[in-house]
Amino acid sequence: MEAVEFTTPKTIDEAVQAMASKGDRARALAGGTDLLVQLRGGRRSADLVVDLKDVPELNEISYNASSGLTIGAATPCYRLYADANVAANYPGLVDSASLIGSIQIQGRASLGGNLCNSAPSADAIPPMIALGSVANVVGPNGSRQIPVEDFCTGPGRNVLEPGEILVSINVPAPPANSGASYLRFIPRNEMDIAVAGVGSAVVLDGSGQNFVSARISLASVAPTPVFCKAAGDSLAGKAVSDEAIEEAARLAMEDAKPITDMRGTIRQRIHLVGVLTRRTLNIAIQRARGEE
C-alpha cells in the first residue's frame, strides 16, 4: 500500500473539511474491509484516509418507534444483530449483517461502508431498499437525503460528490403486520460473494391474508442494486397466494439484467432471482404474521 496520510476527525464538520481538503484524493474509512484491500491492491488510491469512527453520529444506532432506526454509517455489522431493537424490528437487516463475510469481518464492516462501496453484489443494500431506507449525506454544501435505491450509479460508483460523507441511514419504523427478509445464493455455506440476492419487505392487513404493499430489491444481477418497483407494486391489494407471489417473482426476473461471469451465468442468475423472490416473500409474510 502506498504512503497515505491519516486523520481522525471528531465531528461531522471536521470530517467534511478533511474530505473536502483533498477532493477525490481523500477516502473515508469505516471498517476498512473493502477500502484497505482496494488501496493495497491498487484498485483505488488516496492521499488521505479519513477515519470516521470517532465521529459520534457515525458510530451509533438509535431506534424510535415513530421515526424508526438510524444506523451510523460506520457502525459495524455485529452491533446491528447485537441490538435488541434491531433484532426485534428489522430481521431483514439482521439477515444481511449476519452473513456478510466472517465473524472477523462483521466486527469491522459497516452497512454504511457496504452502501458507499457500491458493489452490485452488496448484501446489505437490497434489504435497505426493500425497507424504504434513506441515506443522510453531509458535504461542503450542506446535507441531503437520498433514497437508498438512488444511491448507487455503477459498480463501485455512487452519488457522493468529493467532500461528501454518508453520515447515517434511516430505516422507517416497521408498520404493523410487516416483515422483511434477505437471502442470497452462494455455492458454499459461508464467506462468498452473492451469485444473486433478493431482499423483500411486505406489509399485510390486520387479517394477515392480504398485501397492503411490498418492496423487492435485487443484488448481483445488474451494475447496481436493483429496485423492482413493478414487482412490489403488483402485490399491493392482492390476497396472499402462491399465484400473487409467482407473478411478483416473474416481474422481478424481468428487472434482472445480469452478466455471465465466473460466479454464474445470465440464465442461472435470472432463475435464482425467481427462486429467491418467492422464498424471501414467504419468509417476510411469515415474519409479518409473527409466525417466525
Partner: peptide, 17 residues
C-alpha cells in the same frame, strides 16, 4: 481488538490508538 475478533491485516496500525 476491543473485545471482538478481527483480521489484523484489515486494521491500520494507527487505528490501534
Amino acid at each position: 481488538f476491543d473485545g471482538r475478533i478481527v483480521t489484523s491485516c484489515l486494521v491500520l496500525g494507527v487505528e490501534a490508538q
